[in-house]
Design a protein around this nucleic acid. Structure first.
Lengths: 333, 333
DNA sequence: TTGTACGCGTTATCAT
DNA sequence: ATGATAACGCGTACAA
């Protein structure tokens, strides 16, 4: 009663192993009737191909390494979902490497571990421009950046500058005072993520174009406790009517909480615009900028898979745009 | 110019492939002279065994899955180091699964991915008692808990109760007022980590035994910004001379910072005791509780490897004790 | 102690 | 379109 193999499937379906393999990899033309027979045999036996056997027979590892920062956010959950689903379709496995510290990056990239285990590399969020220019990355390995941008590599990125600009344009239409809350970002020459910098630049550009001034800006670190504290500071300092752009839903949520405690009506005197469209945003009526994260992740995977199947063209960059979702926190709908 | 295989090594060394394999797995008795020959051939060719080939030939995956919470701490960096080094010695690969959310745990445990990819499971920090009792974990898979405890499974854990107790005993010897700062922990029936609860219980027990009272307790979330804010609150509220037990070095560091800004002399009027012994603790003279993290991780790996090689005995629990390191922040040394 | 040969479960290459 | 069969690189009985 061992695990069924491709042989068992072939026997049950009354075909050769080659045919089964072809069905598995949707190769060439297989007559539709036999394909169905094979498929049902697979189902009956609950057959699951042995990945190690394919790896050795195919000469590839059928594995993609994903390197990402360790941050527990909906954003990364969705990112991983998008990546995994895309790679799964192409029958690739995924190995996740959480970048807890700098030395781990070096180790992962330098060691022979990855060399064997991955046909390609996905790097999330980090801006690797410097590393690439220093040639610290072995560019013989196909790779793609997601939620980040660098020259000379395939990238799938969010247009955070545009996101900030959209927020700025929205705020510029609102009467009263404008405020913004930003996320404090670690500074590390190599690991830097410019996400919030870009949102800020876009926001200020739009406000300036509209001839509006920002009455106050605040900075919070990315955690619930700090967000709440800063929310208090913002509401203490704000003059009303006020519209606040919170550059992450986490911060916006804290503002909603704090406003409720203080009995401030959200949607009229105080308007709040977030960024992310977290799962709870709709339920709480938070207006925010929705990011097509899964789509971006899926596209990143597609770019990489293209390289893996031989595409040799110049680096391609795919840019994704956030979408303004207006709800009750800005008095809409 | 392809990757050297075991055949190439055998040829160069003038032996059979069997012998090379035996050397690789330090099997049986191989004459020492031939072993050296083989070894040098391996070095010359820079031969690295193809893991997929072993997996399919050996019928095992030679892979261990490590499931851990996504928290960027020195603690987890060291934990991974300890685990990886131990498994590497035994020629096992490691697959890391960051538990970004609940659904990911379920997916990892339920899916067939892991089934193929791992011979064993390491689960870090999370308290899985409930999951185990509900039989949601397929216990056919050998597993070990590290930095956590549950009935019926091998565990390598830190004695956090003792750690808290040691802190309490130390504070009880100090003149003046005693304060404590705790880390806010998420509440989730399944994911709960009881680390800080235990430290708190031990601390209070020791203080009570010594007939001392705690003049104030504070809670901070686990991030630099919040820690700094809370540090300010603590120093605002404290009466001096004061000794503060910060249940994590991160919090202790913030207290040191805040004290410096306020010109409070640390080591006399204000004493601070941390927990963790982060890399910077020595340089900043922070007294703290050092945890033998690598040793714990190594032991966890050893317990699991024992299961993998057939050990069938009852669950074993290994407990590790923190060590009080006194430096200038408590006026010592 | 050591070499040979077979088997692991796939994919790929041939014929057919 | 499909079936046989040769790789793929290694572990391991078995024979020597």
């Amino acid at each position: 009663m061992h695990k069924p193999t491709i042989q068992d499937v072939a026997r049950l379906a009354g075909v050769g192993v080659g045919t089964v393999s072809r069905v598995l990899n949707n190769h060439a033309a297989v007559r539709d009737s036999t394909r169905q027979t094979v498929l049902s045999a697979i189902r009956d036996l609950e057959y699951v191909p042995n990945p190690h056997a394919r790896r050795i027979a195919g000469g590839k590892s059928y594995t993609i390494s994903i390197l990402l920062p360790v941050i527990t956010t909906e954003f990364y959950v969705r990112l991983l979902d998008g990546l995994e689903s895309a790679f799964q379709e192409a029958r690739y496995d995924v190995a996740i490497f959480p970048l807890l510290d700098r030395s781990r990056l070096e180790r992962y990239l330098g060691s022979h571990t990855l060399a064997y285990q991955a046909d390609g590399l996905v790097m999330a969020t980090y801006n690797l421009t410097q590393m690439l220019s220093e040639n610290r990355l072995r560019d013989q390995q196909p790779m793609v950046l997601v939620d980040a941008y660098a020259d000379g590599v395939d990238c799938a990125r969010m247009d955070n500058h545009l996101g900030g600009r959209m927020a700025g344009q929205f705020l510029a239409q609102q009467p009263g005072y404008s405020y913004a809350v930003w996320v404090e970002t670690e500074l590390d020459q190599i690991f830097t993520s410019r996400v919030f910098e870009e949102r800020s630049a876009g926001f200020h550009a739009a406000m300036a174009e509209a001839g509006r001034t920002v009455s106050g800006e605040f900075i919070s670190s990315f955690d619930a406790h700090a967000a709440r504290t800063v929310a208090g500071q913002v509401l203490d300092a704000a003059q009303f009517p006020a519209t606040i752009f919170a550059s992450a839903d986490l911060l916006a949520g804290a503002l909603l909480d704090e406003a409720q405690v203080r009995g401030i009506a959200v949607g009229s005197d105080l308007k709040v615009l977030g960024f992310d469209d977290q799962p709870w945003a709709a339920a709480r009526g938070l207006s925010t900028l929705h990011q097509p994260v899964e789509a971006m992740a899926y596209e990143a995977a597609t770019l990489l898979l293209a390289r893996l199947s031989g595409y040799r063209g110049p680096p391609r960059v795919r840019t994704f745009e956030p979408r303004l979702v207006l709800r009750s926190s800005t008095g809409d709908s």
